[in-house]
Design a protein around this nucleic acid. Structure first.
Lengths: 331, 331
DNA sequence: CTGAAAGCGCTTACAG
DNA sequence: CTGAAAGCGCTTACAG
């Protein structure tokens, strides 16, 4: 491979001048600049990034740690971050923590060693984590790591939007299937939903909410839905809201198995808007997380002054599809 | 950050000795080694990887280029590759080509600049691409880039396994929905299926195959299925095999819309075994691609002698679920 | 406006 | 078995 010396020699200038041309320094006269450019083209010169990194102590890389790239939400996030980073000439280093704090710590250290421009992490758990001493900015996305600033969807507000939607459709007996309460998202969505329902109950005393507790996954949705529908039919809710699309899809399947028609007899709403949400029958009403916006904001923060960054909540948007409709008339 | 000099000073040895300890050189006496280790711990020393890279001209990174990390198949692939790379102390640099040859080229050049240990690429198109001059090994996975060695599922064999399965179930009128014929996977699956059917036809002259042509996506499956079932019912096939799970899922939806019972009236088989395949109703019989094995093989090849590497086809495995069953008795 | 030179933090022959 | 020194390919004050 040609080095900067070869280019300098071929162009008849000093190495320093080539470097200045490379960095777009305007003090280089056009004649020289042109000679250098031709030499670069001729030799097919590409700068050695390791040498540059050693000298400048900075490398055009963004580190990204997610629990599992196979989860559609994280895949979308990774894609958005990669695209955004690429548009700024940066490459993304990807690591999966496999939802394991130990692995996460190892991956984070490995990334830190490569002195990237910054690191974006969706933490495996939002319980206490070691803090990393280094001048490389670290940003949490979706799930906070330790004390590092967090960029995430406003989960509470999103859940409240769903509550409003169901209330407006006339539902007065609503079930909520919450996500795990040891995650911030799980907690925020539950309290957001409950809070809004409490407010709405002032408008209509008949409004009732029953809550259940599961994981974010599909199986939980199935299990809890079966439990909900195990009682007498006149005790059934007319709408079920859930903390994730996966949960909602589990509910949909149970409804079909039991011959409960969605949305005629039962409205179902999810959360996240994963791709599957619009493929399922009927297509799922849900709350879309602003994934691209989250990624853009995170990258912008990394390139700005991530020092004095504070938490940032971005609003999600209600996506109404065919799994929710006016409440059935009962009795 | 502490440097190797600080460690040397603190341990009272030369920089060279520290370096030898770092690399596990057995010629260093235990006393010195211990002193060095303590100094490292005390100072929290972590080697500067840029400096090491400059010196050794090698960096513990694997480059990975996929069309779109959001596609579940590529996500699985990326996860497997990342896990495998991590187990060898390497980090993965991820790039999305967005299915665009130009972007792919740019991404590939950017990765090459970072002098990774090797690059694994699932190319955006298997039509001609520029060849890259560099001593960094490049390996194609799933879809070939130019002349670079390819590791992929044996698509033809996989499609043949599906053909066998349907034949054994007694199906004698089978439709095949092929994928795009400008992709190798699309072509190989079609010819594999056709070839096996041709063989089986020697055992039973009544065996008939009709083929259709679509994309790999869900919508294609829906469109073509509608077309298939637009004729008289006694001309309908008893089984439909497809070139992708997405296609098959499109077929399933049409079947339900038309009141055709799967698998009683119609057997449906997909290809790939994406996660959705086991979530759909009924669960989809399909051919599982050996994703983990593909990734392991690719990484092993990169760490071995990728020089004299040749193409490698790995067998897929038939996953029988509830969307296929014995052919219905007609007439 | 351009060039000569120092130095980033390592690894690796080479002496001893 | 250990150390002194060269050098990887850049960037960046500093002189001129």
């Amino acid at each position: 491979m040609a080095t900067i010396r070869d280019v300098a020699q071929s162009a008849g200038v000093s190495v320093g001048t080539v470097s200045k041309v490379l960095s777009g320094d305007p003090t280089v006269k056009k004649v020289l600049r042109d000679r250098v450019m031709t030499a670069i083209d001729q030799l097919g010169y590409r700068p050695n990034l390791a040498a540059r990194a050693l000298r400048t102590n900075r490398v055009d890389v963004i580190g990204l740690v997610v629990p599992d790239i196979t989860n559609p939400f994280f895949a979308q996030l990774a894609k958005a971050i990669e695209t955004e980073a690429a548009s700024r000439g940066h490459t993304v280093m990807l690591a999966n923590s496999h939802d394991c704090p130990d692995t996460e710590r190892r991956q984070l250290l490995a990334l830190l060693d490569r002195s990237p421009r910054g690191i974006v992490i969706c933490s495996a758990s939002d319980e206490g984590a070691p803090t990393y001493r280094s001048d490389i900015p670290i940003l949490s996305i979706d799930r906070r790591l330790d004390h590092y600033p967090l960029i995430s969807t406003d989960h509470a507000d999103g859940a409240a939007q769903i509550a409003d939607h169901l209330f407006e459709l006339g539902h007065r007996h609503i079930a909520y299937i919450a996500g795990p309460q040891n995650t911030m998202a799980g907690r925020a969505r539950l309290t957001g939903f409950q809070g809004r329902i409490k407010n709405l109950a002032r408008q209509d005393q008949k409004l009732r909410l029953q809550t259940h507790q599961g994981q974010f996954d599909y199986q939980s949705g199935e299990d809890i839905a079966r439990q909900i529908f195990s009682g007498r039919a006149d005790t059934w809710p007319t709408a079920i809201a859930t903390a994730s699309d996966q949960l909602a899809i589990g509910v949909l399947r149970v409804a079909r198995d039991l011959g409960i028609s969605v949305p005629d007899d039962l409205s179902v709403a999810g959360f996240d808007d994963i791709e599957l949400a619009s493929l399922v029958v009927p297509r799922l009403t849900t709350l879309r997380q602003p994934v691209t916006k989250l990624a853009e904001t995170a990258i912008a923060a990394l390139f700005g002054s991530a020092e004095n960054m504070s938490d940032l909540l971005l609003p999600g948007s209600l996506v109404v599809r065919s799994s929710t409709a006016a409440a059935p008339i009962r009795r």
